[in-house]
Design a protein around this nucleic acid. Structure first.
Lengths: 333, 333
DNA sequence: TTCCAGTCTGTGAACGTTCCCAGACTGTTG
DNA sequence: CAACAGTCTGGGAACGTTCACAGACTGGAA
């Protein structure tokens, strides 16, 4: 295997100096049209590709950002979201010829590795995914002062880690209003974990609309899993047998709730209306199909990348972005 | 922000030379215990982290591998699989202090970027995901002679790109046998696309068991989407109204088939038994829950990484690995 | 004692870039 | 015609490592 051509080879072929080739590569000012053309031609001719390592060594920039995937409970609940996010981010970064390094932060060892990686200067920025409240890693990153953003708020660090997210609160309001407009009188909810933004804000939106009618008795907490949807629904039915609607904070939990309702002999939506959240793939495979709230996931990912790139480009401060959700009416409510 | 400490700083603090520090870092032979200890102490004291760029520059190794995610049709059908795969790969690579760079190969521009990246020497190996038949990129990679493996066979390039995969064919046999043992007489199938290994092999397994009874009339081709499951089922019902079972090559398509059956007034499993494949998250949210075939996804991912690392470590040739599937009996069959 | 093999260490050179400075050449202005 | 600003180019130095080599020191065998 022949050695890869270097900038010297390009210079030799083009009949100019290293410096000029470098200037063409980084399109600096002050390169004559003739030299520019010669260099371009030489690059194409010998198939030259810049060596990023050598470049990084002197520029102190790496051309890559690291996406940190936290998985608090070893659960896979957000799968589809992850995939869309990764795809979108990779695409956007590719536009700037930057690459995406994946890391997971499941345990303390993982988190240390991330810190070491970033501290080692191997990334120009950090993209946090589903980071949970009180993560020491976040503080370490802030300490290192590397550009960092999150998809979804980092609870307790909103002011220091900008983020993009769907409007969970307004989404919950949309669903709750929809249930009321459908004539439902006794509306319960199954929330997500109360240490996640989705858990908190979807409950807030629910409470915003129902006001005093959102009593403790009508609230159950889940952990995003189908199973927790099943058991939460069971507890609600036991406590409030005459409820006629339930807003479940994720489609997956809603699928669990549907199973419980069916087992209890309740018809959906006739006896009990069920509203989900996410518009994930399960929403279509349940019976009946779920009325749910769609999050603009790709847009959220895109915005997150935009924020990060702005920071990397030197912006002092960027504003977090909240994108609107949409009510998708199907048959469950 | 103070400059990061270099190997020189470590050497100074430890009272040894650059060379000795480097030897400790790469645990070469011939370092005295005293020197070793002094260097370790100095590293800890000043928080030294090796600069990978500088290292790569001379070693020609990058310590990273690139995962290429092909998405033939802009579809997201394999979402959950992707996430598990990415997680597993990241974890295994982290054990060796290697990192994972994500790239997508949706269009020709993307593919060229991947080639350029690899040709530029920015990765020690390539991990292909859902690459489709006849992809020029694959040939380019083979040409570059970089270690490359795939999760799932690369059709037409099996001999040159080793892979790990679930035993699709035997899985299909398991399901087909299960349907027969349940007394079903007229068994149809909805396959995946015939240019994917899953599409091909799951049909082969089906045919293996049914032999001549697997007539053309009982076979419909889908494209992994729920919608194609719906329409495929509709066509089957029209052509063969008296079928009493259907093996659908993915859970998602099976969910679509269930909807069609319900609309047609067929009871599942009483009138028609339905078998899926994947044991993905939708399998539990359908009504009734799907009897399906579970793939050992994490294991497959792990094996794929193992193959790749073996190649990177200099193995001349590695054997592809096929892992067993398992029948999961629920209510649909 | 002499020699040699085995340990251990330091140092110059190289990896492939970018940065910066000095200098050459142009055209315009006073 | 002199001075100067603007444009363009080349080449030395630096980025932080690893590698290869040379040499110093040890202990045991001849």
């Amino acid at each position: 295997m022949a050695k890869r051509p270097t900038i010297h080879d390009v210079a030799a072929v083009a009949g100019v100096s290293r410096g000029t080739v470098s200037r063409v590569l980084n399109d600096d000012r002050y390169v004559s049209p003739a030299a520019h053309a010669a260099v371009r031609r030489a690059i194409a001719e010998i198939g030259y590709i810049v060596n990023r390592n050598a470049r990084s060594l002197v520029t102190q920039r790496t051309g890559s950002i690291v996406m940190v995937l936290s998985e608090p409970h070893e659960k896979l609940f957000e799968d589809p979201n992850y995939s869309v996010t990764i795809r979108t981010a990779v695409r956007r970064l590719a536009d700037r010829d930057m690459s995406l390094v994946m890391m997971v932060a499941g345990d303390d060892g993982d988190r240390d590795r991330v810190i070491r990686y970033v501290r080692g200067g191997h990334a120009d920025g950090v993209f946090l995914l589903s980071t949970h409240a009180g993560d020491r890693m976040v503080d370490a990153l802030v300490d290192i002062a590397i550009p960092a953003v999150a998809l979804g708020a980092v609870i307790g660090r909103e002011s220091v880690i900008p983020h993009a997210a769907a409007d969970d609160r307004e989404g919950a309001r949309q669903m709750t209003r929809h249930l009321i407009e459908a004539g439902r009188k006794k509306i319960a909810t199954i929330t997500g974990p109360m240490d996640t933004p989705g858990g908190i804000q979807r409950l807030e939106g629910f409470a915003d609309v129902l006001g005093r009618k959102a009593s403790r008795k009508l609230i159950e907490h889940g952990d995003w899993t189908r199973l927790s949807g099943e058991s939460g629904m069971a507890r609600l039915l036991e406590r409030t047998p005459d409820l006629d609607a339930v807003f479940v904070a994720s489609d997956l939990m809603a699928a669990g709730a549907l199973a419980t309702l069916r087992a209890a002999g309740r018809r959906v939506p006739d006896d009990v209306a069920v509203g989900g959240f996410d518009d994930s793939s399960v929403a279509l495979s349940t019976h009946p199909p779920l009325t749910t709230i769609r999050q603009p996931l790709a847009d959220v990912a895109e915005e997150t990348v935009r924020l990060l790139l702005a920071l990397i480009d030197g912006a002092e401060h960027v504003e977090s972005v909240i994108l609107p959700t949409r009510l998708i009416v199907r048959e469950s409510a």
